[in-house]
Nucleic acid binder design. Structure first.
Lengths: 230, 230
DNA sequence: TAGTGGTCTAGACCACTCA
DNA sequence: GAGTGGTCTAGACCACTAT
């Protein structure tokens, strides 16, 4: 073996696991042994094995060695991107419509998420996202204007809040909840579907550092599917 | 700075991005400069920056340098674990009930997923997963017995197919689709909910190497929520 | 073509944890 | 106490790509 990178080695090791050469739960050779076998430095094996550990394929313990994970926890990863992009990759034309844009004191449930006081106003928006002029998703959003005061001057008719925030606010953290809900009259009206239709719902709260930025509830149109691979 | 690991440096760099010191889209110093600043080897900076690149916080190009990602694609990550564990972490008692277990030739739509021939039989199962004796989820599954013949001898009354496969079959790949569906009569019966209730649905197909193992459609009970953090 | 990140190496020391 | 992985370093060469 002359041409080995940690990527290639990672794939080869993974192959040996998939092939069953090392069974579930089995101990695999230590780094030095593998380094000799693949004729490379221990560091290189280390990188490959660490990557497999991140992936959840193996479990590593000092002194305990490296084992094939007994019950691999597979992870589905979803890119939470801008709705405009989601629509445009399907070849459709994107447009959005702000139904409501106003400042008001949020209800208690929202205050808890944004951690604002009882008297603090926040920006409330109802937006319909359209693909080829048909409703694609409907969102209800609260923005903490104390954390992002510039939003009051943003041209929200041209650029959706969604996109403005992503483009403006630096790297943020967040919570996401996916669920299914029956459409009520309000949502059914916005999405032009039947009352009672099963809708895929995304609930998200994001913050930067200690500051809570926004919380949103997004209803996708009936029949929406979220794809991913393991 | 004396005590620096690539983890700490990674956090510090991320902090400088979050704080706005390096704006969205801005070029950040090159590895050698950062190595001097943090008084460490370039390799250490490299590891930290590569991690941030994996995370989607920065974009790196040879000769082009490292930039803060303009439109960070945030990823929500979900652990696809065993249902029994999902139930037990909530403190509930898990149990499962196989309603149907039989070999038959799958319909065309399933043959496409498992890539089996028109005459090849597959194992079909309908299983109800219970938490504290209430329905938690209902699954319909097809298993390619050609790929996993041992399953015919497995004690599927004691251990769910789900768990048996995870414990037996080595590392696998898969596709996942999440969606929302209205309960029909069959599913409503299994989950003891109303016809028309919005249900959270998971569709998954998994394989090892070239062999397709199983395809499953899982209906969670009404009100189920899938949590994650960005 | 020059400048940047990508990777490898050999050696070293440390930190954890199993027996 | 001994064996394993975790990490750092300094130097080197390669690969890509912006200009």
């Amino acid at each position: 073996m002359t041409t080995n990178s940690h990527h290639k080695i990672r794939q080869m090791l993974k192959g040996r696991i998939e092939s069953g050469e090392w069974e579930l739960g089995a101990l695999i050779p230590r780094e030095l042994a593998l380094a000799e076998e693949y004729n490379c430095a221990r560091t290189t094996i280390n990188r490959a094995l660490q990557a497999l550990a991140d992936e959840g394929v193996v479990v590593r313990k000092r002194k305990g060695g490296t084992r094939v994970c007994r019950m691999p926890v597979r992870h589905a990863k979803f890119g939470i991107s801008i709705l405009r992009e989601q629509v445009e990759v399907t070849g459709s034309e994107y447009r959005h419509q702000n139904v409501v844009t106003k400042l008001k004191v949020p209800p208690k449930s929202v205050r808890a998420k944004l951690q604002t006081s009882e008297s603090q106003e926040a920006l409330f928006l109802q937006t319909i996202h359209l693909a080829d002029n048909s409703p694609y998703a409907y969102e209800e959003r609260w923005v903490n204007v104390e954390a992002v005061p510039e939003i009051l001057d943003a041209p929200l008719d041209e650029i959706s809040v969604n996109e403005w925030l992503v483009r403006t606010v630096p790297f943020s953290s967040g919570d996401v909840i996916f669920s299914a809900e029956n459409a009520d009259q309000r949502v059914a009206g916005a999405l032009e579907c039947q009352i009672g239709d099963a809708l895929f719902v995304l609930d998200r709260t994001t913050w930067v550092g200690e500051k809570f930025i926004t919380t949103i509830k997004l209803y996708y149109r009936s029949g929406y599917q979220l794809y991913s691979s393991l």
